[in-house]
Amino acid sequence: MRIEFEIPDEKVTDLNPNGRNELTRHCKQWTEDIIDEATRIEASRNDGTSTEITAAIINEATTYSKRFPSKKKKNWWIKIIQITAFISSLITGSLLDVDKFKETSHVIWFVLTLFIAVATAVYLTFNSEHNG
């Protein structure tokens, strides 16, 4: 089965061919996601009779997908950065001893772990949309 829909010309006049292809790809993906969600909703309600996805189920699937967008799985390196940020923060806190700041090596370790803790925290903060 093929479903087609039209978008008014004034909405797409500024799209170049690559933009049109990308828009088509996203529309197709979003439509498939809505249909998949509607199928899951219908399957959860189906009591063994014939299946039928109604307009109400499509509306519910659309609303559900907007409220609960699919979560992306975190990359392994993001997890490593999060663990590094946590551990370096703990180590920095344990090295915060004013009496030991007279030793140069202690100050170097403190500054190094503080830098790592701050750098990883800043990275995770400013890239939060990619960190899941």
Rank of each mutant, 00 (worst) to 15 (best):
F101R: 10
K74V: 07
N46L: 04
P69Q: 04
E10N: 14
S65Y: 00
R45L: 13
N75L: 14
W109C: 10
T39W: 03
S105N: 12
T62D: 03
V12K: 01
N21H: 04
L15G: 07
I91C: 04
F86V: 09
G19F: 05
I81V: 15
W77P: 01
I81H: 05
N46I: 04
I91H: 06
I116H: 09
E22A: 06
T62L: 09
V107F: 09
T62V: 03
L15I: 07
I83H: 08
I53P: 07
T63Q: 13
I78W: 07
I87Y: 09
K71S: 11
F126V: 02
V12Q: 02
G48H: 11
Y64I: 02
V98F: 12
I35C: 12
I81N: 08
P17M: 06
P17I: 09
C27S: 08
T31M: 08
S94M: 14
L15F: 15
E103R: 12
R67Q: 15
S128F: 13
R25D: 13
F68C: 09
Y64S: 12
R67K: 14
I58H: 03
Y64F: 12
Q29T: 09
I80T: 14
C27T: 01
Q29C: 02
F68D: 12
T39K: 07
L124A: 12
A38W: 11
T51F: 12
S65P: 00
T62A: 11
S44E: 15
E6L: 05
Y64T: 06
L96F: 05
L112A: 15
W109Y: 14
N59P: 00
A61Y: 02
I87T: 13
D47N: 15
D97G: 01
S50V: 08
W109T: 05
N46S: 15
T120K: 10
E6W: 00
E52L: 01
T125A: 13
N16W: 05
D9T: 06
L112H: 07
L90C: 03
A56I: 00
L112S: 13
A85G: 08
I57H: 04
I58E: 02
I35D: 04
E22R: 02
I83K: 13
A38N: 11
A85H: 10
E32R: 03
R20W: 00
S94F: 15
K79G: 14
T39P: 00
L90Q: 01
I41H: 11
D99H: 05
K28S: 05
I116R: 08
V122I: 15
L112Q: 08
E37S: 02
T54M: 10
K102F: 05
I91Y: 12
K73R: 13
A119N: 10
R20Q: 03
S88R: 04
T54C: 10
T31S: 15
D36F: 04
I7G: 08
I78N: 10
I35Q: 06
T113E: 06
T92E: 01
D97Q: 06
E52M: 01
S44P: 03
T84K: 11
D47S: 11
S94Q: 08
E6V: 01
T54L: 08
N127Q: 11
N18F: 08
K74L: 09
A38F: 10
D99Q: 08
I53W: 08
I83C: 07
I91S: 06
K100V: 00
Q29R: 09
L23E: 06
Y64R: 05
R40W: 02
T62E: 04
A121H: 12
S44F: 10
